[in-house]
Computed example of a mutant assay.
Amino acid sequence: MSQYQTFTAEQAVAYAKEHSGLVDPSELVRAEEIGDGNLNLVFKIYDTQNVSRIIVKQALPYVRCVGESWPLTLDRARLEAQTLIEHYQHCPEHTVKVIHYDPEQYVIVMEDLSDHQIWRSGLIAGLHYPQAAQQLGEYLATVLFYSSDFYLHPHRKKELVAQFMNPQMCEITEDLFFNDPYMEHERNNYPAAIEKAVHALRDNSDLKVAVAELKQRFFSSPQALLHGDIHSGSIFVKSGSLKVIDAEFGFFGPMGFDLGCAIGNLLLNYCGAEGLFDKPTAQQAKAQRLGDIETLWSTFTERFSVLVKHHGSDQALCVDGYVSLFLRNIWRDTLGFAGTELIRRSMGLSHVADLDTISDEAQRHASLCRAIHLGRELILHTDVITDGDSLSAFVRRAF
């Protein structure tokens, strides 16, 4: 099987038998397609005891949720596999394991995480995983440090930047984060009831200038190898464990982008809490999300600083005082990118279940407006929010 062809369930089973690495691959007998409908085919492969053992993921040559009218590079499968392999090398405890990658069929075989739950699903169900924010902070600090100028020789860094060039997937990000929401565009998707909030956003010239600055930073700051789409839907959790998946948007970019996406999604859950839960549960969930954000950021800064101190290789960058300055700049980027994530998930092409599954229409619309408002305020006030604690206070004042 050399020429690219889209897998059927039967072909996925046969492929898993060949590349699973299991002692007895003949026990693999059945596949279930579990893709989320956006970009790829994803199969769970079950054994004779009906236990899911392996995941087979195949890239499609178009955006699945739109159709063949939106073609998409198959090379994203290579970039996803290589990003995950690179991240696993430095942080195996929090990165899904890639078992096999096929550059002809654009297939990744990876470990099954059926004993985990998608973090977003847990949050929407009102579950709290108290270790998750700390583990995510550790993951981000580790993988971003080891792919940064603090650690890599400049020659190796430049080689990796070239290896992980991902122009087509980055273009999707550029459009969905920095272009579409701020203009009338057919990809935008929001209810007519929030039109007033949308127009106010698009009429804000200061906001557009700030978003332009964020877009320029996204274009031109290859600080580290990013996951590129890190959100609560691309993270699996269980008690004591967190694993990151879905890195097909991986590229070298500004560290604050990954941090901002992660924090932005926690804030989306915050914005939807009053529509998802009764009042006491909503208050508890909102406090937990702010606590998660504080923990994520403090863990990231502490871990990153320790790594620079003990493993940094560039003497100029490791000079006393610079890492603190560097992290202050990363925090400002983080706030801005978190704001763009809140906005694009509320009125752009790709929404989140934290808001869309709110059954009461008025509550859903109010939650969308909260997310748009908070996103705007974060982008415009990056200089006055100094850390996780002050972000929590800022959010509480806003709502």
Rank of each mutant, 00 (worst) to 15 (best):
D360G: 08
I385W: 02
I372H: 02
R345E: 11
D333W: 11
V384A: 03
T334L: 12
T334F: 12
G388K: 01
S367C: 13
F399Y: 13
L368C: 07
I385F: 02
S346Y: 04
S390I: 06
F394W: 04
T340A: 05
T357R: 13
H351S: 14
L368I: 14
A338E: 02
I358N: 06
T357K: 13
H373Y: 11
T357V: 12
A398R: 13
F399W: 15
D333G: 10
R397E: 13
L380V: 11
D387P: 03
I372R: 02
L374I: 10
N329D: 14
A338Q: 03
R397T: 09
G336P: 11
H373R: 14
L368W: 08
R332V: 01
D383H: 13
G348N: 08
L335S: 06
M347Y: 01
Q363I: 00
I385Y: 02
Q363N: 10
A398D: 04
D383K: 13
I385Q: 03
H351Y: 12
L342S: 04
R396D: 00
R376T: 14
D387Y: 03
D356H: 09
E377K: 13
E377R: 12
H381S: 13
R332A: 12
E341S: 07
L342F: 06
S359T: 14
T382K: 12
F337S: 05
S346F: 05
R328Y: 05
D360Q: 15
S350W: 01
I330K: 10
R332D: 00
V395R: 07
R344G: 06
A338H: 04
D383G: 06
Q363L: 15
T340P: 01
S367N: 08
H365Y: 12
V395A: 08
H365V: 10
R396W: 01
S359K: 15
F394L: 04
M347H: 01
A353T: 14
R344H: 08
R328E: 15
L355K: 11
L335D: 07
A393W: 00
E361W: 00
R370F: 03
E361F: 07
V352H: 07
F394G: 01
D389R: 14
R396G: 00
G336M: 11
E361H: 10
L378A: 05
A398K: 14
S346A: 15
L342W: 04
T334E: 06
